[in-house]
Design a protein around this nucleic acid. Sequence first.
DNA 1: ACCTGAACACCGTTCAAGT
DNA 2: ACCTGAACACCGTTCAAGT
Lengths: 240, 240
Amino acid sequence: MLMAGQTKLKAEPRIPLSRERVLHAAIELADEGGVDALSMRKLGQRLGVEAMSLYNHVAGKDDVLDGMVDVLMNEINEIVNKIEPSSGPWKAVMRERVLAARKVLLRHPWAPDVLESRQNLSAPIMKYYDAVVGLFFQAGFSVDLTHHGMHALGSRALGFTQEMYDDSGELDENTTAMLEQMATEFPNIVGMVSQITHDADSTLGWCDDQYEFEFALDLILDGLERLRDREAQAATAETS
Amino acid sequence: MLMAGQTKLKAEPRIPLSRERVLHAAIELADEGGVDALSMRKLGQRLGVEAMSLYNHVAGKDDVLDGMVDVLMNEINEIVNKIEPSSGPWKAVMRERVLAARKVLLRHPWAPDVLESRQNLSAPIMKYYDAVVGLFFQAGFSVDLTHHGMHALGSRALGFTQEMYDDSGELDENTTAMLEQMATEFPNIVGMVSQITHDADSTLGWCDDQYEFEFALDLILDGLERLRDREAQAATAETS
DNA sequence: ACCTGAACACCGTTCAAGT
DNA sequence: ACCTGAACACCGTTCAAGT
């Protein structure tokens, strides 16, 4: 007899909990506040439920993190698999794939951290790497060179590298004063930074992550291609 | 009057606490049990003191982690600075430096994690990078190319890369059976792995981290050198 | 100046209890 | 079958109190 009143009072928590809903909430939480903001208690809170209820749909926090990666990788796989492997030279295709994956990853700042922290052999990740390996094969790379290439690319194959130096720092009058102080201690770095910022129009944000990523990616892909051609050349020389 | 008895009873905790002693104990703890095993409470326990006493010598846990990195980097700097920059071709010198740094890092499994987790601009790290930048300059690299080269190397300049795939896995009869199952889902990876392990003498540990690291390092250094030479060639062509 | 104990605000996870 | 509340064993850090 109170049914009407009940549905009116709280219409939100009608959708039943599920593994998928938990994972999506976890991704939202991490997108907003970073991986540190993700706790089982906050996750439960966001879903309008006690933290302990989550354990009915998820094995524990590790399982949540693994699941988040799988959701993300499925999203990436769906996108990169639309790229036709024979739509152009192998390098262009590889580039397009990697940069498409990167685009997705950039929307999820927690992804590099989480990806690197786990021993990752889940199906969606394997599926991704399998396609990359396949692309090398199709381009005539030997098994060995493909293997080394995968290692050389490392996390770059997925579209990211953990940046060691965050140089998005603004160069206000404070830091420029500090630069002079540092000039004696780190003459080469200071020389490099000051010359680059002087040449550019803007003094802030003196390097472009995207550009640097593509530079290194091309460096590696070009190098691998050269090794492939050298290998092929050596093989034909042997038979002649 | 009880002094003799006191010194006999506990002779160990005579050395007074200090920032340095805290940091070295932290490194020991992390070396043994990984970074997760490092807590302020356990750190205090190891030093025979209440956790809260540490705060007299250290600002907090973040400061401990920063300090650990600095201790490590000082050790590395001391070693790599013994390498004479003009003792050979730039690439050989760079290689030797990077691999020497790597050797130290390999003794501290927590280092990659901690290094990547902090926004690192401390003096010992800057000192390290400054020497690398200096080496590029000395080898005739332009400011821009040096800059891109630093980014391309990334954490590799320090001697490590966060491995995405840990393939030290042993291939026992269990996993080989699994491989066949996976063959349909990940044909390229399975093909690559099986062929490589078949060619090699041993079926376990089918790749050598050190070899892969050096392969990628050489790939990048070779690529950078080629770009440097092309730049120089373009410059002379312009003047003639 | 240095160390301590109790306390606070958090964690992940277990378990018996509820419906 | 699913959710809850209390509890356990941990965190980092603050603060008043001791010496």
